[in-house]
Design a protein around this nucleic acid. Structure first.
Lengths: 144, 144
DNA sequence: ACATTAATCTATTAATTCCATAGACTTTAA
DNA sequence: TTAAAGTCTATGGAATTAATAGATTAATGT
């Protein structure tokens, strides 16, 4: 299951995608509109900013806004950044690889194979889920 | 990421599949051969037994053994039992459904769709990964 | 009947991760 | 120069996960 942090990040980014090219949006607004604890959201947005997904502007009239186009930001990268590995086992993770300490030999492990397939399918789907697609879908479903 | 408990369960079951129809195997042996803390393993095997995946026999010559054929036990059911939901969001889980409290409306949520696809692909793969296939693969890869 | 073997049950503790909040500091615009 | 808003550091609590300890129960062979 994804962490709250990660879900909050996705919701916040979708919200910002909706306001793309409309100037900075402040934390307070996102926090209220999407029911995310403000202080927690601060930390999340900061991290997204350090990852160059968001830009920010301090002071009056400041706030956060997307650094990239909504069509260039996808769920795969958001999840990797905010949650960590996407794979179900550390030993099949591309970005967060670690040796499974309960395994004897990766070469002869019959279990990894299935999890490699799961990983690849998952990356495929999440990598193709961009913010603009999510937004389009919400509009099609009638979200206000 | 899967919990250790779940990984231990998978390894123990593969070990027992290897000894299928060769009589009860005791906890101690599985624990030693697969580097699983004995006491922790006890609890795991007990749970698998309560779920009718294993049978047990007490006393001298006792131990655990598969209740079903290795071709009838797959990773999907093991994970659901030992780890919980397979979906990445509670609101798209088939067996552990819960409303996402940070979401406003499931009907108009543009995010769920991708996670439903991930879930379905994952179930497909894990559901087809049976103990006997895992064993065959290990033999093919040259595990002793 | 008895001793031994091995699973079962009940508690408890330790470690880790996750979620959330507090408060001081910095930058920017009006 | 004052108010608005992001930035940084630190901390606390809750929940979950991992592991251990000790007593009990059941089956088996002699």
């Amino acid at each position: 299951m994804l962490s709250k942090k990660c879900k909050y990040a996705i919701h916040a980014l979708v919200y910002l995608a909706e306001k793309y090219q409309q100037g900075p949006v402040h934390i307070q607004e996102i926090s209220e509109k999407r029911n995310i604890p403000k202080k927690f959201l601060e930390a999340i947005l900061l991290e997204l900013r350090n990852a160059k997904i968001l830009h920010s502007k301090k002071g009056k009239g400041g706030g956060y806004y997307l650094h990239q186009k909504p069509s260039d930001i996808n769920l795969m990268e958001i999840i990797r950044l905010m949650h960590g590995a996407i794979a179900m086992l550390p030993c099949v993770s591309l970005n967060y690889y670690e040796k499974c300490d309960e395994c004897r030999s990766e070469k002869t492990c019959g279990i990894r194979d299935a999890f490699i397939n799961v990983r690849d399918e998952t990356l495929q789907i999440l990598g193709g889920s961009t913010l603009d697609k999510i937004l389009k879908r919400e509009k099609a479903l009638g979200a206000k």
